[in-house]
């Protein structure tokens, strides 16, 4: 593992222009500021960990990056331009990636946090639809091969709503990694996976990374982050609280694990810590004094 990681970092350092660039990004929902002023960069070919507690705005940031939310301030670009599905334009960065070099536009694979599919369609029809939209070259062969590799070969003709949650998630993952995306964004990909499937997912991430795919990973599992990520960013109160390589962040905080850093940033073992209060006692009594946001 260690050896692999050092080759990865070596690969990323030689790229000068960032592949993903977020500058002074801010967004509010109904008067509530979610992201205040966020700037970060993701280099081509690296695995970037986007971390933060529940509700800190990780998903919101990704949605804004993909044009699903409109930012109130700042700019979010992929390869030098705001993301738009299927816009054909010359690549800003020269592509030495192993991805099909004839591609004329940036492809993005996004596994959203909310896992929805067309419920009444079959697995095959759904995947074929997205495969065509993503201009996959040999969609039918690809889908069959993928499904048999993830153990869903028998479910080719099943309706999506007849699948278990984890199985549906594999279908979505397939849709996400179709066409070897240049940028892969995974929002809590291991959520709901058993250890076997988690291993499978890690393998897929690893393989794509080897092929030169840039990956942004959102997860709450710090062991995954330590194992996979080159750079990380810790979101809190709408700004970046920690940003850098895993090693740098650890030495900045002078703590041995990312778990410890996470707990420190989010207020565990400090005076305004909720964890010292008992949680399940006196739930039926009115609170004594109003509390802050966290």
């Amino acid at each position: 593992m260690r050896a692999q990681k050092s080759t990865k970092t070596a690969k990323t350092t030689d790229t000068a222009t960032p592949f993903v660039k977020v500058e002074n990004f801010g967004i509010t929902f109904a008067g509530k500021t979610i992201i205040r002023d966020l700037s970060f960069e993701v280099q081509k070919g690296e695995i970037f960990g986007l971390l933060g507690s529940n509700g800190s705005g990780k998903t919101t940031t990704i949605r804004a990056l993909l044009g699903l939310y409109e930012p109130d301030q700042g700019s979010l670009t992929i390869d030098g331009a705001p993301f738009s599905p299927n816009t054909k334009r010359p690549r800003a960065t020269s592509s030495q990636t192993a991805n099909s070099p004839q591609k004329t536009h940036i492809t993005v694979g996004y596994l959203p946090e909310e896992r929805g599919l067309y419920k009444k369609e079959t697995v095959y029809d759904t995947m074929l639809y997205f495969a065509k939209l993503k201009r996959l070259k040999k969609p039918k062969i690809w889908i069959k091969n993928y499904l048999s590799r993830v153990g869903l070969a028998d479910n080719l003709k099943s309706k999506v709503d007849q699948l278990s949650q984890g199985m549906q998630q594999k279908v979505q993952l397939g849709i996400t990694i179709m066409n070897n995306p240049d940028l892969l964004i995974l929002d809590e990909p291991t959520k709901g996976f058993d250890p076997v499937n988690r291993r499978l997912l890690m393998q897929i991430i690893h393989e794509l990374h080897e092929k030169g795919t840039t990956i942004i990973l959102i997860t709450h599992y710090m062991d995954e982050v330590e194992r996979l990520c080159d750079h990380i960013l810790l979101l809190k109160d709408g700004i970046a609280h920690a940003y850098g390589t895993v090693k740098d962040v650890k030495s900045d905080f002078d703590l041995p694990t990312l778990d410890d850093i996470f707990l420190r940033v989010y207020g565990a073992n400090t005076e305004h810590n909720h964890n010292f209060e008992r949680i399940t006692d006196n739930l039926d009594q009115a609170p004594q004094k109003p509390k802050g946001d966290y």
Partner: peptide, 20 residues
């Protein structure tokens, strides 16, 4: 409304534009 109701919006809108 289907995409919105079934939470497919994110998946589909990163593949096609809303107008398409």
């Amino acid at each position: 409304v289907e995409e919105k109701e079934n939470r497919i919006s994110e998946l589909i809108l990163t593949s096609v534009t809303p107008r398409q």
